[in-house]
């Protein structure tokens, strides 16, 4: 095997790769969230934002391809670590409990595989709802562009989709609560001093991201914007 393959297949390399791809996806999510907030500034703002992204041409495709690779690789690593775990303890404990204290076992860390798989399925439906949608056209400043504003308003007027989206964003918050802290630990950026600080920052970040994504659909559904 080549050096890179050996590294990526080692237990440490797999964690480092999970952390790096995780950070990349978090960065994307933050940019995505900031983009969503343009809805609050009105139809012209969000439609122009979307139009500007599409004008990037090849650069946009490079980012999309990179994102797809990160996403698939991150999911594959998570699933393979989970499968490995089942092999590593063929005989289960009759009784198992967390000691608490320094333990980071929680509703967030213990459900990473579940929240991860649900997020994976969500992304597929989400791309179908928005990215692959045949948008109506809107004209702003004499330029014809996709009417993203109208599509958002239409989708989040539906109670079922709104509930589905809100639930998934709560799961995203749960995934990030352990994921962000864990990525720092996986990349070795951790000392006994920084550990509690980063653990707290991860919680705040997860909360802000989940609340940010939940804010838009609820605002549309309850006609606050």
């Amino acid at each position: 095997m080549s050096k890179a393959a050996t590294f990526l297949n080692s237990q440490v390399g797999r964690k480092i790769a999970t952390g790096v791809t995780g950070f990349g996806l978090v960065l994307f999510i933050i940019v995505h969230l900031l983009g969503n907030l343009a809805y609050f500034a009105g139809a012209e703002a969000i439609n122009t934002y979307s139009h500007t992204l599409h004008q990037l041409g090849p650069l946009l495709w490079i980012v999309r391809l990179g994102l797809l690779l990160f996403f698939v690789y991150h999911a594959w690593l998570g699933i393979s670590i989970w499968l490995e775990r089942r092999k590593a303890r063929p005989d289960k404990y009759e009784m198992y409990a967390s000691r608490g204290g320094a333990s980071r076992q929680s509703w967030s860390s213990s459900s990473m595989i579940l929240t991860g798989i649900l997020l994976l399925l969500f992304v597929i439906t989400h791309l179908n709802t928005f990215a692959f949608h045949d948008f109506e056209k809107a004209i702003h400043g004499g330029v014809e562009m996709h009417d993203v504003h109208a599509r958002l308003s239409e989708v989040f007027a539906q109670p079922i989709y709104t509930i589905y989206y809100v639930v998934i964003m709560v799961l995203l918050g749960m995934h990030l609560r352990h994921g962000v802290w864990s990525a720092f630990q996986s990349l070795g950026w951790m000392s006994s001093k920084t550990n509690p600080i980063i653990y707290s920052i991860a919680f705040v970040l997860a909360l802000i991201i989940a609340a940010g994504f939940i804010g838009l659909p609820l605002s549309i559904y309850f006609e606050l914007v």
């Binding site: 964690k15 670590i81 490995e84 775990r85 320094a102 213990s110 352990h178 000392s191």
Partner: peptide, 21 residues
């Protein structure tokens, strides 16, 4: 042995209180 998922349960049970750092 399996992969680490940063659960830190090891630190909680370690009789020598070794840190996950």
């Amino acid at each position: 042995f399996g992969d680490c998922s940063n659960y830190a349960e090891c630190e909680a049970v370690c009789p020598a209180e070794i840190s996950i750092t």
